[in-house]
Amino acid sequence: MKLIETLFEGALWNSRFVILVAVIGSLLASLAIFYMVSVDVSILLQHILHYGSSELTAEARKVLHDSTVSHIVEVVDGFLLGTVMLIFALGLYELFISDIDHAEGNKSSSKILVIHSLDDLKSRLAKVILMIMIVTLFEEALNMKLESPIDLLYMGGAIALVAAALYLSHAGDHPKVAHGDDQGDGH
């Protein structure tokens, strides 16, 4: 009976390697998104070269300006999405397979990629997803046509909610210091 238990527990423990499917898939998705956004950037740069052309009318220049700003916001959104997939791949690998030695021992590497718990992974992903949502809201605000005063009120409400979300996500990272524990700064 002990042999069966040992074999079962070994198989159960090794089943965690199925996570490699998600790790590799997320990494490939991240690379695909980075490639697509890089192509978008090169096309965007080609369009921008015509911005200074004397052949453009003021109206055409304004249209090119507005579409360029909109495309830049889309590029930022794409890079953030690629970053989410990369953090997700690295986090799953660290949680289920093994610590990434290069991340732990490298003093110049960012600690955002070092994941110690599922809560670490969720927190890091949530912050990047919040940034994607902010960029998407910004993109929608650029294209929004204000037709009535209520539209302006809705936009203001959306901005206030984004500000509250940013404040709450930042407040969660830095717990309040007790009044007597300000480490002697005299305040």
Rank of each mutant, 00 (worst) to 15 (best):
V84D: 04
L49F: 07
D120N: 14
E5F: 02
L92Y: 03
I150V: 15
H179V: 14
F34Y: 04
Y93F: 15
W13E: 12
S123N: 13
I97E: 02
I72C: 04
G10R: 05
V75M: 00
L31G: 08
L20P: 05
F79P: 00
S67Q: 12
A164N: 07
D101T: 15
F8G: 02
V37R: 01
V18K: 10
D151H: 09
I150T: 13
A60I: 09
A164K: 02
S70A: 10
S98V: 08
H116S: 15
D151G: 07
L153C: 08
H116M: 01
G52P: 00
G180N: 05
L86N: 01
I134H: 01
A171I: 13
I97N: 05
H102L: 13
E104T: 10
F96T: 03
L45I: 12
A58G: 13
F138P: 00
L166H: 06
M133Q: 11
S70N: 04
A32F: 14
R61H: 06
M155C: 04
G52W: 01
T68S: 14
F79K: 03
S54N: 08
E104Y: 09
I132F: 00
F138T: 15
E55V: 14
N106A: 09
Y35L: 04
I97R: 05
I48E: 09
G186F: 02
V114N: 01
M133E: 11
L90D: 01
I4R: 04
A22Q: 11
K111D: 12
I150A: 05
L146A: 11
G172K: 12
